[in-house]
Design a protein around this nucleic acid. Structure first.
Length: 181
DNA sequence: TCTAGGATCGGCT
DNA sequence: GCCGATCCTAGAT
């Protein structure tokens, strides 16, 4: 499953204010039209979700609660609107840049331990919606640095914040890497 | 055009 | 541990 493969991968962000690299350690899968918690449940196709209906490997970024951005990776491709939400990551490079963006003297882990925080830390906004994460030319890309993902222990947990989805809220589609520091 | 509600965060008790 | 902020999106009218 793609969600598990994303654990341990590097997320590389390049902006005017600096380059930052984080290692993904928490993700959540959304299974498209059959998943009541997914934005595309039942075949919904709107301007917001258009990116999810497109090719795999793109970033799907949306705004929740009018305040926070969330970063997703489109996983399947044309006609199958499935995606993986990046919930958390560990800072590899650029911690000073991230600290200045997030402000304050928060502990390192608190800078990127939620979807909204992660986007703020990496300066990800709707302007980045639809970028190709597989291209190293992109301002935002995912790379594999050879980190042995089979060595990390993965814990599967119920998803977060989707109680409204009924039974689907309990599906164990949240993957947490236990090697997080 | 209007209205309800949300894949969160941070402050307060 | 609980509650309110805040504004965009989507579906209803």
């Amino acid at each position: 499953m793609v969600a598990e493969e994303l654990l341990g991968k590097l997320l590389v962000r390049v902006t005017d204010t600096g380059m930052t690299v984080v290692r993904i350690n928490e993700v959540e899968a959304y299974l498209g039209v059959e998943d009541p918690a997914c934005h595309t449940f039942g075949g919904r196709r709107t301007p917001r979700t258009e990116t999810m209906w497109g090719p795999a490997g793109r970033a799907y970024i949306y705004l929740v609660y009018g305040l926070h951005h969330c970063l997703n990776v489109v996983t399947v491709g044309e006609g199958s609107p499935e995606a993986v939400l990046i919930r958390g990551a560990e800072i590899v490079e650029g911690r000073d840049v991230i600290r200045s963006r997030r402000g304050g003297l928060l502990p390192l882990q608190a800078l990127t331990d939620g979807p909204g925080k992660l986007c703020q830390a990496l300066e990800i906004t709707r302007a980045d919606d639809g970028v190709d994460l597989c291209s190293e030319e992109s301002a935002l890309s995912i790379r594999d640095d050879g980190f042995d993902s089979s060595a990390i222990r993965i814990r599967r947990l119920p998803r977060v914040g989707v109680e409204y989805a009924g039974d689907a809220a309990g599906w164990p589609l949240r993957y947490v890497s236990l090697s997080r520091v």
